[in-house]
Simulated scan of single mutants.
Amino acid sequence: DSVVFELSTNNLVFKDVPEGQSALQKLLIINTGTVALRWPTNVVDLGDFVIQSVDPSVTSAGGQSEVTVRFKGGSVGTTYADSYTFTDTICNRSQTLQISATVASYIGFTIKIDTVAGNIGSEVTVPVRIINKVNLEQSGVTEVQARLTVNGTILTPTSDVTNSTFLADGSRQFVVTLPIPTSGDVSTNLRFRTSWGNDTASFIRVDSIWASQELTVRQDAGQVILSDLCKEGGPRLFIQDAANIWKGASVRIAPQPAVHETLVELNVVENGPTRVDLVDMTGRVALTLVDRTLVPGRYTLPFDASTLETGAYTIVISTRTQRMSNRFSVVR
């Protein structure tokens, strides 16, 4: 048997890490011997650097383990260097890793979007904050443009936005102006109208930004959580009939798009109060097709689409334990 290992690099360099930020790098322990090697499982703090993990902690013969090293961050103009010696626990073979870091000045900040709760059909306000500002006063930047993405089946912007686009996957993108606050950290307040959608919460994230000069911008995404979706029991989207065949709840609209006479085919698997609403993109219930107790079975619900304004709608089926939705459009 032989005990031999090597490192994928013996000189790990963290180059131009943004001032005040931490950074991670990885390397490999390569076992070229015939005996499995074991490594300490505890975190090793070297001061400016940390050996965070060795995974797996046992490197099989001919195998590899991944080492994660973290630089804690520092200041421009300071030299950071250290070393760590990996020693196997069997024959005390060792390999030394040299670690160094340089720090670069940068201009930037973090966009933090709050998480709020709201009821369906209400207007919610979501603060957008500019935090962790670094050297921003040197830039002369007073505002940035940001493209945001939300779940468009749940949220419709009512505040000042531009280039609002509803995408095929149900998401909505739009552009907002984010002023750099001179006091406090709130840049702007986003306002949305909530509606029934395909989930119980909507993400709000930054996809891209534009500014008058290069900035380092990080983000902390937010959410709008629909708080009035209390349900009795768990979802019952499927039931098993006497023949042990699983049948699922479903809803289908024909024709698509809707023009005049339209049929909603509804398959119900639960006995109890059931409501079927047609909801427009503002979250307003445009038409209620059913609001009564239904027993399991298949139902055909006709309605005249010509009584609705043209545009996109969502049909929402609500019972005590589940909610389903499907999108359709009305044209002339």
Rank of each mutant, 00 (worst) to 15 (best):
residue 277 D to G: 02
residue 4 V to M: 13
residue 16 D to R: 09
residue 228 D to I: 10
residue 168 A to C: 00
residue 61 A to P: 04
residue 27 L to E: 00
residue 14 F to C: 07
residue 125 T to F: 00
residue 26 K to G: 01
residue 226 L to A: 03
residue 297 G to M: 04
residue 233 G to H: 12
residue 329 S to Q: 13
residue 17 V to A: 06
residue 260 H to S: 11
residue 95 Q to W: 02
residue 307 T to W: 08
residue 215 L to R: 13
residue 119 N to G: 15
residue 12 L to C: 03
residue 40 P to E: 14
residue 124 V to T: 10
residue 168 A to R: 11
residue 59 T to W: 12
residue 291 D to H: 14
residue 57 S to P: 00
residue 220 D to F: 00
residue 127 P to E: 08
residue 231 K to H: 07
residue 141 V to M: 12
residue 230 C to V: 11
residue 25 Q to N: 04
residue 243 A to K: 10
residue 27 L to Q: 03
residue 302 P to D: 05
residue 293 T to G: 00
residue 4 V to K: 14
residue 58 V to T: 12
residue 216 T to Y: 07
residue 309 E to N: 12
residue 100 S to P: 07
residue 251 V to Q: 08
residue 145 Q to D: 09
residue 92 N to V: 04
residue 186 V to W: 02
residue 184 G to F: 04
residue 256 Q to D: 09
residue 118 G to F: 03
residue 248 G to D: 13
residue 222 G to D: 00
residue 187 S to W: 07
residue 148 L to T: 02
residue 44 V to H: 10
residue 105 S to D: 12
residue 53 S to K: 08
residue 38 R to M: 02
residue 116 V to D: 01
residue 8 S to A: 10
residue 235 P to G: 15
residue 137 E to V: 08
residue 327 R to Y: 02
residue 309 E to Y: 03
residue 283 G to E: 09
residue 196 W to S: 08
residue 1 D to W: 03
residue 171 S to C: 07
residue 158 T to P: 03
residue 228 D to Q: 12
residue 111 I to Y: 03
residue 113 I to A: 11
residue 135 N to C: 02
residue 246 W to K: 14
residue 211 A to I: 02
residue 72 K to A: 07
residue 169 D to M: 04
residue 199 D to Y: 11
residue 322 Q to R: 07
residue 244 N to E: 15
residue 207 D to W: 01
residue 8 S to P: 07
residue 248 G to C: 12
residue 109 F to C: 04
residue 89 T to Y: 08
residue 280 D to T: 10
residue 137 E to A: 15
residue 239 I to V: 15
residue 50 V to W: 03
residue 183 S to P: 14
residue 267 N to G: 09
residue 135 N to V: 00
residue 110 T to V: 04
residue 331 V to P: 06
residue 25 Q to T: 01
residue 175 V to D: 13
residue 82 D to M: 11
residue 285 V to N: 05
residue 133 K to H: 01
residue 99 I to Y: 04
residue 108 G to A: 09
residue 244 N to A: 15
residue 94 S to W: 12
residue 196 W to A: 10
residue 160 D to N: 11
residue 174 F to E: 00
residue 194 T to A: 05
residue 122 S to M: 06
residue 117 A to N: 15
residue 38 R to T: 07
residue 198 N to F: 14
residue 204 I to L: 10
residue 76 V to E: 07
residue 286 A to Q: 05
residue 280 D to I: 11
residue 20 G to S: 02
residue 112 K to A: 15
residue 9 T to Y: 08
residue 270 E to V: 13
residue 188 T to A: 06
residue 100 S to Y: 14
residue 161 V to M: 09
residue 255 P to E: 06
residue 47 G to R: 04
residue 157 P to Q: 05
residue 39 W to H: 08
residue 5 F to T: 05
residue 218 R to V: 00
residue 316 V to H: 13
residue 66 E to N: 06
residue 73 G to L: 05
residue 16 D to H: 08
residue 82 D to F: 11
residue 157 P to A: 11
residue 121 G to K: 07
residue 254 A to C: 09
residue 177 T to W: 00
residue 56 P to V: 10
residue 286 A to K: 05
residue 166 F to K: 10
residue 332 R to Y: 00
